[in-house]
Write a protein that binds this DNA or RNA. Structure first.
Lengths: 226, 226
DNA sequence: TTTTATTTTTAGACACGCCTAAAAATTAAA
DNA sequence: TTTAATTTTTAGGCGTGTCTAAAAATAAAA
């Protein structure tokens, strides 16, 4: 009864999940088009099909959202993606900027036994190399509640980097250069109102300037006031 | 310039390689159709396309064979297939009858770094779990010269099992049951001319009867006369 | 609230990889 | 060597997933 989905269908579900966020907001056709590098008309076609399959609920001109069944599948794809990334970094010494493209392929491999074995081999990791939570076998996701964006932190606070956006290789390479990684402790010294950039300091290092765009894509957890 | 091939195209190249054997014989349309579970007309279509891409040489009604470029790609796919099978068995404790289907998916993952890392992780294995040689990074294949089929062995000889055909799960399960695996030493006691079956004995075990079909799919190496 | 701009959907097309049915070429048999 | 059987190819069609261009619905601005 359970038909298997195409890579394309799986990607749609995954991206709808990402775009709808933790609040399960509706996702617009254009937003999806951009994320999937496709034209809006193609999105419409696919949403119709996924709608018929009861994987998304979709009404013309009103955007879409995942049904429970669709979300379940999306989470499973994300589980695979993040486990593979963890495998590549932890077992094969890939850099965190090298794993995304390969994981996008590996996430479509169909074998429950395989992915659960990888999970076990890695000792059931809770977070992937970018700090994103790895859904467990039953689809439960352990979001880090205290996590906020670096760009939202108050001046003079001290935070720990817990996640970074994974989809830009350029960002990851840049963070590597400036020595920011998961676990790095940052002190926020100043916020420049002109361009919303921030002056931060790595424990024991020099102060440096971080643009708004970069700060937006770094997730941190509060450590303490200075 | 190097366009990437579809999974389908890769599968065609791989099967042409297998069917043409070590002597690079021409492969017929029907033979391919059977291996690929497709109709002959579909094969013709694809052969035309692969011909245009200079991956196979193809003349109407005359069968096909791989060009150097096509063979190179085929060998690379086979390298990936066999390395993944070895990974599944050696690192994730899959049974040798469980790996084929997953490996058929994994062989299409595009990442040179990934497959070379897996190779290294496995310590550059020479043979996969079914005893087939794993092509190295440069495409060299180390065929075991002294290998023959069990069905060709002389009565009263003693042989070591070095390979088994991997594509039938039923065969692999059966061999598991009768305790034949790579490395098993067999003594050939008799050959029944009526059905061409053989009486063989595992070192320290009982004599048992092996059908022609099964013997055909076991590769052995001569050990010594009794 | 009417007009304008933006978003989304429809309509029609195309490459891919497969199919069936019928024709053509090759091979085997009489 | 002529006929029969088999193999292979052509012709035309179909579902998938994409596209462009044009129409329709919604949202924003005047």
């Amino acid at each position: 009864m359970e038909k298997k989905l195409s890579h394309s269908e799986e990607n749609y579900l995954k991206e709808i999940f990402h775009l709808s966020g933790e609040l399960h907001e509706k996702v617009s056709t254009n937003a999806l088009a951009e994320r999937l590098n496709a034209k809006a008309s193609s999105i419409t076609d696919m949403l119709k099909k996924l709608g018929e399959k009861k994987l998304v609920s979709y009404q013309k001109y009103k955007g879409c959202s995942l049904t429970q069944k669709g979300e379940q599948i999306a989470i499973y794809i994300i589980r695979k993606h993040r486990l593979w990334e963890t495998f590549l970094v932890n077992k094969l010494n890939f850099g965190w900027d090298e794993v995304h493209d390969v994981a996008e392929q590996l996430e479509h491999i169909r074998s429950v036994k395989l992915i659960n074995s990888i999970d076990e081999l890695l000792n059931f990791p809770k977070y992937d190399p970018h700090g994103d939570p790895i859904p467990d076998k039953d689809g439960n996701i352990n979001y880090m509640e205290s996590k906020i964006s670096l760009s939202e932190t108050a001046v003079k606070s001290k935070v720990e980097v817990v996640s970074v956006d994974e989809d830009s290789m350029a960002l990851l390479k840049y963070l590597d250069e400036i020595k920011i990684s998961i676990g790095t402790i940052l002190t926020i010294h100043n916020r420049i109102s002109f361009d919303e950039s921030m002056e931060v300091q790595i424990a024991g290092g020099n102060k440096m300037n971080i643009s708004k765009k970069v700060a937006d894509s770094i997730g941190v957890r509060f450590k303490s006031k200075i």
